[in-house]
Design a protein around this nucleic acid. Structure first.
Length: 684
DNA sequence: TAGTCCGAGTTTTTT
DNA sequence: ACTCGGACTA
């Protein structure tokens, strides 16, 4: 019997071969973690290409750009690299964007629309919010909450009132005001030709359902393949159904045990209902795990065994067992950070590259202390998840200028740009918008540079030099046909230089980011393409672009569990396995939320090939710094029940005795707090 | 316009 | 415990 240790490019097990060899017609693949899903999907694409399906008639929808690129690269190795590159592959949002640029006009969409990222959308929501009188009362939801509610309505396609009672009960009394704000928000986007992330899906779904445009769209593809189907939402399922209605084949791959995007309105119903929605669908289950050792899988299975809703898959592996998973009890967070460093470096000594190890955690800030410690010990690392490159304010400044060039009526971009200048705040900026002919619209045909020069006299004297420089830079970028995107960035960067130096604390790192952006821009043919792709597929990593200069160097991977989806490493270090951190105590309100946290924990565990280390800090300080040492003792995560703990070796870091000095959960207040309370009592 | 002070609500994960 | 928004002042 052939026993593949890893799924080699040509070596597939019988179930995988059935997937690859499946003819036309709908197909659902239920693929447990580590069962060779990526290879199988890649082999299927390769098989389609070999069968003579033309690459541009294949649509491959994945969760991230990276996943699509990797699958197509593997498919290229199996079939023909040149043709695999012509396959339509990417995220729902990126593919929607691409299709809408070409076919959106038929829906009345201006082909020059701009795409708002999450924080732009929130800003626009905030603008509308501030204009609504009723929104001033206390407890009125903030702009981010407003966007979250709006987005949930859009993605679930359920009435506002239901969404409020279900997910945002504390906002239910404001339903009428919310409806008014959302109405204005939608109107504002329409007037300024802006599409937010949700719109990319909604317009695509609308277009695909349209009797005329929809036929044309559906006619573009013979095969539709969707990865991570358990994390799609209602609108995405509608898109798949509509796009596949003329296709020879539609295939969805997913694992209900790995559904972790409920907060983004993803619904497991999609994968469960696939056979009903696509009649005659074949269902193939992949259960043999090629990634992890049996003892890692035992932990994963034990975690899921506690789920009230049964997932009737048991992962198994033929791999030999070598190391038992390790549960590390740490005195506190600081000890955890150094214990992780120690273990990472010990593995490194044994020959496991840093790149083959990952540190995973629930929330982006959970790695803060570790990052300091890694820096101190000079261990190179890259972090995924959390604050993105694009969200740093200097990058948004530069992007705002690009967006003005692209869409001269983009109110938000103007608002941001104007305030860059010394002496221009919200009040002046708002006044200038009218003179610029942006809101209300005027002077059709006049360029951004002209408009800016025209209002110069109305700006404070202190702002004129900087605004003048910006206007010149905008003018220099104006001729899209002759000025390369890279040169445009160079121009804008020069004008921003003094502003960045004046307004940011450590300007050099930020100016360096501009340089990186300039290099990045060389890969794009047009400014519009650059801006859109940057928004839809921002560079990962933090601070600087952890790009080419690091490539030859070995580095440790730090990642949120969400961002680690689809990844695998020889050694996985999972931080903060304490109740309150994982599961996050923000997500323990409703049973569904806890179940999603459990699946998230399962995803984290199943990323490990050979070594699994789970760290549990016993003591959490309430204040990071300060004189008093108020802290509490944590409890081990509820996802590791007693039965599961027998699967681990136990280690202790920074602890004289393995037991906590007081019962878990008790709060002790340190000396400093007692002193200050005594002082308080003096004048009470 | 921008800085300071005060009070109150909120907290995470991502395209 | 921290951040955001509003009010008030220079």
């Amino acid at each position: 019997m052939p026993t593949p240790t890893a799924v080699a490019d040509v070596e597939l097990n019988p179930a995988q071969r059935r997937v690859v060899g499946h003819g036309d017609g709908p197909l659902l693949v239920v693929a447990g973690a580590g069962t060779g899903k990526t290879n199988t999907l890649a082999a299927r694409v390769a098989a389609l290409l070999t069968r003579g399906v033309s690459p541009e008639r294949i649509l491959l929808l994945t969760f991230t750009r990276r996943a699509a690129a990797e699958m197509l690269q593997r498919a290229g190795r199996l079939a023909d690299p040149a043709s695999s590159r012509r396959v339509w592959g990417g995220t729902f949002h990126a593919m929607g964007h691409r299709l809408l640029r070409v076919h959106g006009a038929a829906l009345g969409l201006d082909p020059g629309f701009s795409v708002l990222d999450q924080s732009d959308a929130a800003d626009l929501m905030g603008l509308v919010r501030s204009e609504q009188a009723a929104s001033t009362h206390t407890r009125f939801p903030r702009q981010d909450t407003l966007l979250a509610i709006y987005s949930r309505v859009a993605n679930t396609q359920r009435p506002l009132r239901d969404v409020l009672t279900d997910a945002f009960p504390w906002c239910a009394t404001d339903a009428a005001t919310l409806a008014a704000i959302f109405g204005e928000y939608v109107e504002r986007k329409r007037a300024q030709e802006l599409l937010d992330f949700d719109d990319l899906l909604l317009f695509w779904a609308r277009a695909a359902a349209d009797p005329c445009v929809g036929e044309r769209l559906a006619g573009l593809f013979d095969h539709v393949l969707v990865d991570e189907y358990q994390d799609t939402n209602t609108v995405q399922a509608e898109i798949v159904q509509a796009m596949a209605r003329r296709a020879a084949g539609v295939m969805a791959v997913g694992d209900d045990a790995q559904a972790i995007y409920g907060f983004r309105a993803a619904t497991v119903r999609n994968i469960l209902d696939f056979p009903a929605v696509h009649p005659g669908a074949a269902v193939i289950t992949l259960e043999e795990n090629y990634r992890s050792t049996p003892s890692v899988l035992a932990v994963a299975n034990a975690v899921m065994a506690e789920a009230p809703e049964r997932h009737d898959k048991q992962l198994w592996s033929r791999r030999p067992d070598r190391h038992r998973p390790c549960l590390v009890h740490c005195a506190d967070e600081t000890t955890q950070a150094s214990a992780v460093c120690d273990t990472v470096l010990a593995h490194h000594q044994e020959g496991v590259r840093l790149q083959d190890q990952a540190v995973l955690f629930r929330a982006a800030h959970h790695s803060d202390l570790l990052e300091v410690e890694l820096g101190r010990r000079k261990v190179p690392f890259v972090k995924y998840g959390g604050l993105r490159f694009l969200e740093s304010s200097h990058i948004k400044d530069l992007l705002a200028l690009l967006r003005i060039l692209d869409n001269v009526y983009d109110e938000l971009a103007w608002f941001r740009t104007l305030r860059l200048a010394d002496g221009v705040g919200p009040a002046t900026a708002r006044r200038l918008l009218a003179s610029l002919g942006v809101r209300p619209r005027a002077d059709a045909g006049s360029t951004s540079a002209d408009r800016l020069r025209h209002v110069m006299a109305q700006t404070p004297r202190s702002a004129r030099a900087e605004l003048g420089a910006l206007a010149e830079a905008l003018a220099a970028c104006g001729d899209e046909a002759h000025v390369e995107p890279r040169e445009q960035i160079a121009q804008l960067r020069r004008a921003l230089d003094p502003i960045v130096r004046r307004s940011y604390h450590r300007p050099d790192a930020r100016l360096h980011d501009f340089e990186e952006l300039e290099h990045l821009a060389a890969a794009y043919r047009s400014r519009g393409q650059l801006v859109a792709e940057l928004v839809l597929d921002p560079p990962a990593g933090t601070g600087d672009l952890a790009g080419p200069p690091l490539l030859d160097e070995d580095y440790l991977v730090l990642s949120t569990v969400h961002s680690a989806k689809g990844g695998e490493w020889d050694a996985v270090h999972l931080l903060h396995a304490a109740d309150g951190m994982f599961p996050s105590d923000l997500a323990t309100g409703r049973p569904e939320e806890i179940e999603e946290e459990r699946r998230l924990f399962y995803v984290a565990v199943t990323r490990a090939r050979d070594h699994l280390h789970i760290y549990f800090p016993l003591r959490y300080y309430h204040r990071r710094s300060g004189l008093d040492d108020a802290h509490h003792y944590a409890q081990l995560t509820r996802f590791l029940p007693d039965a599961a703990r027998d699967l681990f070796d136990t280690r202790h870091a920074g602890l004289a005795s393995p037991e906590p000095p007081v019962a878990p959960g008790t709060v002790r207040v340190g000396v400093g707090a007692e002193v200050s309370r005594a002082l308080q009592d003096l004048w009470r």
